[in-house]
Amino acid sequence: MKALQRRTLLTATAVLATVGLAVSAIPAQAAEVGVTATGIKLGMTLPMTGTASLGYNKIPGAAKAYFDYLNANGGINGRKVTLVVKDDRYVPTEAVAKTNELILKDKVMALLAPLGTANVKAVATSVNPARRGVPVLFVNTGFSGFADAKKYPTTYAVLPSYIMEAKIMGQYIKENFAGKKIGLLYQDDDFGSDALAGFKTAGVNFAVKVPYASGSQGAAAAAGWITKFKAAEADVVILFGVSSATSAMLGTAAQLGYKPQWMLGSVGGDATTIKLTGVPAGVLYNAIGFSPVPATTDMTDEYVKFFSDIYAKAVPGSAFDLNVLLGMNTAFMAAQALKAAGPNPTRKS
């Protein structure tokens, strides 16, 4: 019996070795998953529908606008870059399912700019792109942990981290709002905890901190937040949440006549997105804001001019805003990564 098992095992090993040889002979011709002689396929998950989609659902159109321009100008060494987009509604379990589809069914070379801290974390755990060798390029979240090359070896950050932003906000508060009572609205997950860590490092003492659960943001919730900020007599209120939370807060504050000094985090600070929801421009006036890229209205900036010209032609009638600029900037960086990866780019290169 033992001998038989051993023989079976030996045979199986021999078969495996033969298969192994055959498989290893293939890559010489087929360069990489998602890469053909004429194209490179990338995949993106983000909220295209649902509460949190506000503003961010313009990102795929922005990225595609740049890739179309790139493709019309020779692509990456003759290969056209295509982008497969899947709606995850900002729900981590859906991000996991859609990412699996992108990798297994659509067979993308790499994931580009997946959005949301909780979503990217869930994907890292359940899909494990690192184990599969799939690059996760330029995640659309500022969670500081994603910069950790040991923990997330195939994941690359692009946005400055929430900790960095909170520290820079803290510095501004120290220099300009010393002695004022500071209030903070934040999302009650890893997005918010990263911000809290940064504020702690910066030594910011809050008169009141108001957490909100992802998906709960709306006018009714905002009225409740305002009650808390008023009770604490906050002079400065920091909104460190998604666009829909900022919009709900500013819209409700306008109705109730609540006017603290606002300070907006970059994630939810895009003016075009906020104004589109009906928030009057005057409510934003004099609020403090932060951005790593130039002002989207600054047409003296060569990138803003270049990207906005391409976008206007690709998506006529759609306002050029921060989500568009960041989406195009990320696509532009991805193009450089693909070009720098050599004549036959692979996931590893």
């Binding site: 946005l159 400055p160 960095m164 820079i168 004099n286 403090i288 932060f290 790593p292």
Partner: peptide, 11 residues
Amino acid sequence: HVGLTGYWVGK
């Protein structure tokens, strides 16, 4: 794998 490392402050 840290990306951009800062911000400008605006009004």
